[in-house]
Design a binder for these strands. Sequence first.
DNA 1: GATCCGTGGGA
DNA 2: TTCCCAAGGAT
Length: 351
Amino acid sequence: MTPPSTSATLAADVVRWQRAQGRHGLPWQGTRNPYRVWLSEIMLQQTQVSTVLDYYPRFLARFPDVQSLAAASQDEVLGLWAGLGYYSRARHLHRCAQAVVADHGGVFPATAAQLQTLPGIGRSTAAAIAAFCHGERAAILDGNVKRVLGRALAFGEDLAVPRHERALWSLAQDLLPPAEDMPAYTQGLMDLGATVCVRRSPRCGLCPLAARCVALAQGQPEAYPVIQRKLRRGQRQNTLLWISQGERVWVVPRADTGIWAGLWSWPEYEDEAQARQDCAGWPGQWTALPAFTHVLTHLDWTLTPLHLALPPGAEAAAWPADRWPQGRWLAPAQWADWGLPAPLRRLLGLA
DNA sequence: GATCCGTGGGA
DNA sequence: TTCCCAAGGAT
């Protein structure tokens, strides 16, 4: 458990490299504010830095601290998250903020073990927050670290097997530097994985670990890490009923589980016939729009928008209001701030 | 342990 | 085009 004190360890190489060559200007760096670090870690889960750069400042401007976030409505949180994907992150983020306020006096707990008990914070995220904010010697194991350490150690076991992933996690824990170096080390592993030790064509000539990298010595850095994913993407088709009246669009809340849980969308049907049948007798102009495929991690989802333009007037507007009491009309000025999934934002011309 | 959960980008 | 994956976690 005692960290090595020499200056010739793998961790020391990473720390030196990070201070000289790593990334230092990202919006969530240069702070030990747990709220800001936590927010960035959640947004960055399975999401590239370039994407988060668009969302992080806006979210922080609206919710500058954990109290303001805890006091917000879930709809407003999801409105700021819309387009980022993996919306359970936003729902857990909101619940986590409320738990921090209600159970911890508005102060994030300081240890990784305590952080990991909060909604949406798993082992790696908890370690990152504790390392960045408090120098705790806790190991992260994200995609970057799997690649950097997987190659440096030539770890050949299949990381899709939880037992093997735990083994690499244990090795990662053994490699940690002294506490004062933990922020730079944790950031350095991420920076290395993102800019040097990349998935294909790694830039080993620039890597501070090249001299000790076993995979490079074997002449096959790209052979690691081994992750045998057996996910087969399924297929699904639906018709989305796009109802408009003038400039307004009718939206309904989605279920609190499944795809786009907690967001708003258009009424969803098995096919066009069922949509038309459900709205038999309604006034207005029907238009069938071209289908498109929305690709999710585990699903190719073919969506066919079916447009119904209702005539003006309160009488026509009452049809959807009567059919979906939980729904509501959205004016164009509201679209950008509403919790609408990416394909709908695109169809509405917000992309 | 296996599955579910978004979106955009790179090769 | 197709595949992979990007600061994973919950169920």
